[in-house]
Nucleic acid binder design. Structure first.
Length: 284
DNA sequence: CGCAGGCCCTGGTAGC
DNA sequence: TGCTACCAGGGCCTGC
């Protein structure tokens, strides 16, 4: 599941392998992959053809590639999306959704996505950010990320802590994996009411999320199910450093109690039952 | 407005 | 063996 570190690895790959090149033609092989492009796949292909990719940018889990036309190609990898750079003639992947061919005859850019939660769309490149991303908060790796403002906003919420960490309008880039890791590092329970957080606790959990994501980026991104690979198909290996996520039944690295898995928001949450005690008034 | 919950999607796997 | 049920979960959407 690509979260911020994995998406950043992809962004760097795009910067290296796609930026500066000119699109010759685009093949949209699955309409769902371009569902956010309301004018349809043919329109997307038309407006991308003969356009040069200017740069590769990211906010949270979103990527966008500004074009020399003033549009930007916005991409989200969803659960299982990949952007692969493949030599022409390489056999098509089973879940190939969109193919970009370049005028230089070099490697193609392929959007591959098994579960089709991800997709591509063209939008105006409105200065700093495509319009559809206006609601996405800055992520912790953004130079303009304002920790104290996020801490204050977090403590104004009236919800469970993990819900808030996953809310991309509060802080972006954090998904299920890094939320569980940040909570484990700070010994906080996922159902802690945000309005009861002490300022140092709030500061610690946001800082922990930031630190864990930065560490993952340093190691090439988390990958435990082979669905995530970077722009050239290389897997990361950060899963070996996870302390909570996916560790049910394994001993907590801090206290030895067995990590438990709990249902939360139709997904899983992992925590240490001893280090991360259930709060008196949980907000599930 | 803030917040909660449903839904979308597919391949792998567990269970009968 | 072959079927069904369940699981992974980010983000959009709706309703309260």
């Amino acid at each position: 599941m690509p979260e911020l570190p994995e998406v950043e690895v992809v962004r760097r790959g795009l910067e290296r392998h796609a930026v500066g090149r000119t699109v010759q033609a685009v093949e949209v092989r699955h309409p769902r992959a371009v569902r956010r492009h309301l004018a349809g796949g043919a329109d997307l292909a038309d407006r991308l053809a003969e356009r040069r990719l200017i740069s590769a940018r990211r906010r949270g889990k979103y990527l966008w590639l500004p074009l020399d036309s003033g549009d930007a190609l916005v991409a989200h990898l969803g659960m299982s999306g990949q952007l692969l750079v493949q030599p022409p003639g390489t056999e098509d992947e089973p879940h190939l959704r969109v193919r970009l061919v370049f005028t230089d005859g070099g490697p193609e850019l392929r959007f591959v996505d098994q579960r089709t939660f991800g997709g591509l769309a063209l939008e105006p490149d409105a200065g700093d950010l495509p319009p559809s991303l206006a609601h996405i908060a800055r992520d912790p790796l953004d130079p303009e990320f304002d920790l104290e403002a996020v801490v204050a906003a977090l403590r104004r919420r009236r919800t469970g802590l993990k819900r808030a960490l996953l809310d991309q309008t509060l802080v972006s880039g954090v998904g299920n994996i890094y939320a569980d890791e940040a909570l484990w590092h700070t010994r906080l329970h996922w159902a802690r009411p945000t309005e009861e957080l002490r300022r140092p606790e709030a500061r610690a959990v946001i800082t922990a999320a930031s630190d864990v994501m930065r560490a993952a980026l340093g190691e090439g991104g988390t990958s435990f199910d082979r669905l995530y690979v970077d722009v050239n198909g290389q897997s990361g290996w950060f899963d070996r450093s996870l302390h909570a996520y996916g560790q049910a039944g394994r001993p907590c690295a801090r206290c030895g109690a067995l990590i438990v898995r709990e249902a939360f928001m139709n997904r899983s949450s992992f925590r240490c039952p001893r280090c991360q005690r259930t709060p008196r008034r949980p907000r599930w």
